[in-house]
Amino acid sequence: MIRRNLPFATVAVIVLVAAPLLLEPFRLSLLAKYLCYAIVALGIGLAWGQGGMLTLGQGVFFGLGGYSMAMHLKLTEGGGLPDFMVWSGVEELPALWVPFANPVFALGMAVLGPVAIAAILGTLVFRQRVRGAYFAILTQALAAAMVILLVGQQGLTGGTNGMTNFFDLFGRDLAEDSTQRGLYLVVASVLGVLYLATRQLVNSRYGRLLVAVRDGEDRVRFLGYDPALVKTVTFAASAGMAGLAGALFVPVVGIISPALLGVVPSLELVVAVAVGGRHVLAGAVLGAVVMGYAQTAFSEQFADGWLYLQGALFILVMTLAPKGIIGVAERLRRARTT
């Protein structure tokens, strides 16, 4: 038990204690951003790595969570209508916005909204036995549609610019370092708890069933299970994680816009999971953090080169190390012990 949890405990100490002490505030909030992505990646690791559902539209759920939180922040800063509404000539607060003034409602919607949408979509799609590439394309189309919807509703969503200029969160000044450090700790803890919960799920009987559905959906039917239900539940869980990640992302980064949740960011997260190693949950988390760091580091040097490097990395991983960084690490460890 202790040996099994040693790697997790080590990482938890580094992330929760060492990082806040050693990193300057700017770097710490960058790390907080990567950890938000890591929460989405964890969901992708569950749905794709364990359940075989290649979801290319997690940005949709991330965005729903992000916009819920952003709406709440916009409403609590005082001073009447949110700024972008004034610029768009909106004179009265839209009815859709009103309940988001309540923080519980906003946070609830950030998670339950994505869960509900994924559950409905899953029920419709998996029952019809849509899977594989067709499912992937469908989720990607959803991400594209989401962007069009957000951009088109300028007065409601801030259009292409999205929403920014958030000043405080639950009464605390967002510009303060202490608030940012607190946020970082919240994000890291949420990730830790979700990781443990997801790992428990993967190791449970349900996890075995999920792998069985991934490897032989048709056979699972003849074991008396409904694979559509198993997939829907899993997909909804991964959507909930993405939604929560989006809600945390907004106060950490200070902006939400269609560019952060469309087809490209959704794909980037899948690539990150593949690079880290999709068969293991830790691989998904690692991939998101590593790719986040790599993007920042690389973009600081060569602004436009990152996309190419990312594409090249993806091809490299897929052809040479299909189990990602974790797979390579495991192979090295085995080579050393034998």
């Binding site: 799920l201 190791n203 449970s204 009987r205 349900y206 239900l229 198993v230 539940v233």
Partner: peptide, 9 residues
């Protein structure tokens, strides 16, 4: 029931 499978064997 499906939820009871969430426990380890």
């Amino acid at each position: 029931p499906l939820w009871s499978l969430a426990r380890r064997r």
